[in-house]
Design a binder for these strands. Structure first.
Lengths: 293, 293
DNA sequence: GTGCATTACGCGGCGCGTAAAGATC
DNA sequence: GATCTTTACGCGCCGCGTAATGCAC
């Protein structure tokens, strides 16, 4: 079987009618070409060259072969560049954004980043962390910027961006609203509305209560952050959220926990998958803007 | 650089959407394909496959690449077969025939052999052994069927066919014509006409006389066998020729030498050159017909 | 458990470079 | 002797197979 290397070598030797020149041009040693051409002749069973003194002349059948090679090599080169292009310009990225702090990222990503990289088509899915991870694993998504528990799946790659402090969030006239911080005993019996089990925050809260051998009094689960906030603002109950999820202009109070807990937030990709250049740019951007947070 | 093997593997895997099947079809082990595809993905920087459970699905960019591969692979296959054809059907053979016994071979080659292999175009050059060898070395000829001295050139391949007995050849009414054999003393002083120094016979005769510390009395050198025979038939002088060179219907007498010497006759090709199938057929034919001689 | 894919590991071959020899002008 | 090619030889890498492990149904 004639290899591509043989073809390239053969091509150059034919061009120069000189092995030394060909070797220099190919950045390999002269004997390499010499033996390669001998091997090629042996393998094809053709007399490709005619040695006259120390001059190499291509035989008729040599140039016939050269013709074919001249046809195939450019196609191979084109293939290479097309592969490069495909790998470098995969300008459609499907990304999950965390519901809680998505509101902070979303304007910057859709504004600043999109302006800087107009060729990149961003498809953003807002969903709970658990399902986001599942979608990345199923390759329904390219990237998830989300909360995660390390080791959720062996098939994922976790790249931490920041820690999310989890707070007790309530309405301004709640007894605990004025407190600087609250202990577990303070809020243990509070009625709660919680993001449902597709979200990491519920897992953490659940685990926290379990550690204290009791259960949270959740009166409602919702997959909608807006619903959660609405219920809390209405003074019906409280909740737990990441500090960043509570915006300044909202009628909510985020109170620190005396035993604080954190959710890892970061970029999750599927292990083994190629990270395309455009994806990498997005990741770099996210890393940069989270530095300031 | 994407190799041809990678392309073939990739193609098969895409066809079957299954590594095991592809491996069987390619007659390699399963892990071979598995790692090859991983390497391919890493090298191209593309996600070619999407693993769903134990099923392999080609991604959109995978099938894009497959498209290119589907275009190149058939060309490569065609190239291979064309190389095969070129090597097997090089139906133009340039061959030198020995002047002295060419007359015996020529009718059979141009008759019998040409009939049996009508596709082979034979170009036959009649010339002296020395120049024939030189022409083979210079690749002006493909084959020389000729007399030779082994080791004439390092660049030639010698394949012995038979020995040529050299005889003292004279006219019927010459004093030595009736002898069964002649010694060196018998013919040492004879006047001779000789094939010139392009022919091996002269070399041998020259060496014979030198061994006896004398010189042959050559009154004329000629490159034409016809001239030699003509002069001898005219009763002007004698010569030395291979026994086969003297035909029965000629008015010549070939007398054996008491100290006989022989010239190797055989097939000479250039070392390192490919021997094409058609050439091999001719060689086989020559070997066969010389067995009977 | 069965079928498929992946990982681990050792072997062999091949392409390469260096160095030396050979050939041609 | 200068230039170019070929031969000799040793090394490192890569593709391969076997065997073991991992996963999914």
């Amino acid at each position: 079987m004639m290899t591509l290397t043989q073809m390239r070598y053969f091509y150059e030797v034919c061009q120069w009618q000189n092995i030394t020149k060909a070797a220099e041009h190919l950045h390999v040693s002269q004997p390499t070409i010499s033996v390669a051409m001998q091997t090629l002749e042996a393998e094809t069973g053709l007399n490709l060259f005619h040695r006259e003194g120390r001059k190499l002349v291509v035989t008729p059948e040599g140039s016939k072969l050269l013709g074919k090679v001249n046809h195939i090599l450019p196609q191979m080169d084109q293939l290479e560049t097309e592969i490069q292009d495909m790998a470098h310009n995969r300008n459609h990225i499907r990304m999950a954004l965390p519901l809680q702090i998505g509101t902070r990222f979303l304007p910057r990503i859709l504004g600043e980043f999109r302006l800087a990289h107009p060729q990149i088509k961003l498809e953003i899915i807002e969903t709970g962390g658990i399902s986001a991870l599942q979608m990345v694993e199923d390759e329904k998504l390219d990237i998830a910027l989300t909360n995660y528990a390390t080791g959720f799946s062996q098939k994922l790659c976790y790249q931490k961006l920041y820690d999310c402090e989890c707070c007790f969030v309530t309405y301004p006239f709640h007894p605990l609203a004025k407190r600087k911080s609250v202990s577990f005993a303070d809020f243990a019996d509070e009625e709660l509305v919680m993001l449902d089990s597709h979200f990491f925050i519920y897992r953490m809260v659940h685990d926290l209560y379990t550690a204290h051998s009791c259960k949270p009094r959740v009166i409602h689960f919702s997959p909608y952050l807006h619903t959660i906030k609405n219920l809390v603002e209405s003074g019906i109950c409280s909740t737990f959220l990441a500090r960043q999820a509570v915006l300044p202009d909202e009628n909510l109070v985020a109170v620190a926990l005396e035993e604080p807990f954190y959710i890892n937030s970061g970029i999750v990709t599927k292990k083994g998958r190629q990270v395309y250049e455009d994806e990498q740019q997005l990741i770099d951007y996210l890393q940069q803007i989270t530095k300031d947070m």
